[in-house]
Write a protein that binds this DNA or RNA. Sequence first.
DNA 1: AAATTGCGTAACCGAATGATTACATATATA
DNA 2: TATATATGTAATCATTCGGTTACGCAATTT
Lengths: 123, 123
Amino acid sequence: MITYIFVTNRLLKIMRRDVFQAIADPVRREIIELLADETLTVNTVAQKFDVSRPAISKHLKILKECGIITINKQGRERFCHIQPKNLIPAFLWIEQYRNLWEDRLDSFENYLTKLQTKNKKNE
Amino acid sequence: MITYIFVTNRLLKIMRRDVFQAIADPVRREIIELLADETLTVNTVAQKFDVSRPAISKHLKILKECGIITINKQGRERFCHIQPKNLIPAFLWIEQYRNLWEDRLDSFENYLTKLQTKNKKNE
DNA sequence: AAATTGCGTAACCGAATGATTACATATATA
DNA sequence: TATATATGTAATCATTCGGTTACGCAATTT
């Protein structure tokens, strides 16, 4: 959803939906997965799900609004293209904790190794 | 996400929260950021936000339910620890598109390089 | 020209979400 | 023991979400 506000005589466009919200829904994640492989029309996407076409239309609108896909008109069909670079912000946010979980896994492995060494000594 | 399961002839509604939902909310993301740096009590977390303590309590409960934090009782205080490895599924999901966006960025760079070369030839 | 197709959107609905206030309970302190 | 503190939770509320059906419109087919 896009909102417009006035700030000191200027019309500002506010993106209330972000990529985190976009990928929160499992249907939208599946749509992203589909479009990562190939460009599809709105109907083709809709046919791959149990929900109605308007429901898919809404999901596509949300994905479009936060830049994850673009929709190109061609005749009466709309082709949905993925714009993978707009997943980068979400990726970077999670990635900042990568060292954290890798450290913890390391220390867990160390713990296991020590445990095994200890057990061997006791044999 | 809602799941239904049958347990002894009874249809049970299961609210399975996943990590994507957990990080969809900006307050919860901020909480994660705080706890990545240090372990904090529930009250200490709440004091860093404008919303009420019960609201933070709920957010913490959600984070706990999907394994991103653990809460340890110590006296009358509860200490919240981050469990960063439970962010890995979300990380992996996004990361599978990494080559996709890197390819696109590459081809964009190539395009720019070619453009520059072309321009140089024309000089 | 008439019918079909592809798609967006409005109107509506039930459930989920995120917030609040009020209260309960366990622990620490005076 | 009485009070203060840390926290969880129930009740409630407005808003958002994800779905549906019904409809409209432009483009293609017949």
